[in-house]
Design a protein around this nucleic acid. Structure first.
Lengths: 219, 219
DNA sequence: AATCTTTTGTTGCTTGCGCAACGAAAAGCG
DNA sequence: CGCTTTTCGTTGCGCAAGCAACAAAAGATT
């Protein structure tokens, strides 16, 4: 586990905590390492879990299925992303989503109860850990709001624009590369892939955007 | 403020804390009372706030607007409901929703920073307060997931069914009364009111549900 | 280089549903 | 009670977008 401590210092959960302290904390909260193979499920909708995790390496996606078994991407997760944060802190611990590894994934698992339990040494960093956790849960909630801002739009074009403008805003540039291919983008925006392609073409024709492959530009 | 302490003991935030302790805590976290008139905005989308609130009396709704200025109801809030919990705990404190009073509303406001700050007396109840807060943020996140489960459905009928089954589940009964009128229900499910009425009629005709006014029954 | 697989774009068909307009019922009010 | 206002159901129209099928392009594999 030692080899990850430097990476952990850069995560939101351990922000403001020194590598030395992290090392102590990991014991204190009974952290453990778990690996997953590509396509394996880290979490399954409806299942109960009492731990949350941090991705140490690899990428994953949080998904749901609609009634016709079509995949809907809720969030993309990468190195440093937290998994099951809301879930672990909830009351009945029933997962609202499934999380699937998109490649080999290593995860640091932490039981929520140990996070809450103040350690015997009552170190100030444990305090900080808790505060970081609260921030993370809140940010996850905001992410869902962002998500809804797309879904709520009545037309495909508006869904696309809402999403593109958000990414553009995050990247602070009118040019950017999306983390999705067409299919993934459709699953994220919850529209038909062909309908998405069609509308992207129209938008290019109307000169509101330009793109090729996953590289986009707002005009 | 004293007159509300008994009510506060029943809220999620103060769960497990005695009225006596609550009384002390309120000073400790610099809680203050604020009143709002009907239709007044308690929170406005995009604005920054560093406090969260608990409704002491009255009802409110969290809403967004789509591009055509149609209202979309995110959550209904009533006595005991928390307002701005995710917001206060977030990093940039920019509200993702507007919250509007639906009648005269009284709110207990608490600055998030004082919630985090451990009081000088370092009372154990402050500890409990923090844990309760984490639970609440998580539950708010789950609420958004529930919300999405409706929005993600491709057809109006499925949106309706998803919502009705959730309420039925909560109420533990196939008969229940919705907190919405038709218009509100449409705003919640993000569909046209007339389309909603039409589909409700069809579903009654198909004998999958029965209803009149806001009283529904699943068949 | 040849073959197979995956990813995109395109396009006709069909339909669910947004929209607007209207009437009836219910509720609020002087 | 009569009048106004709000709520609710119904219906015709038109279009956005889901669906399916296909072809072209891009990668992957041997």
């Amino acid at each position: 586990m030692k080899e990850y401590i430097k990476d952990l210092a850069d995560t939101n959960l351990f922000s403001g905590i020194t590598p030395n302290e992290i090392s102590g904390l990991l014991d204190c909260v009974h952290a453990k390492l778990v690996d997953y193979e590509k396509d394996e499920f880290i979490l399954e909708e409806g299942n109960r879990t009492y731990d949350f995790g941090i991705i140490l390496s690899g990428r994953a996606r949080a998904i749901k299925w609609d009634s016709t078994d079509r995949v809907i991407i809720i969030t993309l997760l990468q190195k440093g992303s937290e998994i099951g944060v809301i879930l672990a802190a909830s009351l009945d611990h029933k997962s609202p989503v499934s999380v699937q590894a998109q490649e080999k994934v290593s995860i640091l698992l932490i039981p929520f109860d140990y996070l809450l339990a103040r350690c015997k040494k009552s170190c100030p960093c444990h305090e900080r850990l808790l505060r970081n956790y609260i921030n993370i849960v809140a940010e996850k909630g905001l992410l869902l709001h962002e998500r809804m801002n797309c879904l709520l739009k009545p037309t495909v074009r508006e869904k696309i624009m809402t999403y593109l403008m958000r990414v553009s805003c995050e990247k602070q540039s009118l040019d950017f590369v999306l983390p999705f291919n067409r299919n993934g983008m459709a699953e994220y925006l919850n529209v038909e892939r062909s309908a998405l392609s069609r509308e992207l073409s129209n938008m290019k024709k109307d000169k509101v955007i330009d793109y090729n492959k996953n590289s986009f530009r707002l005009l």
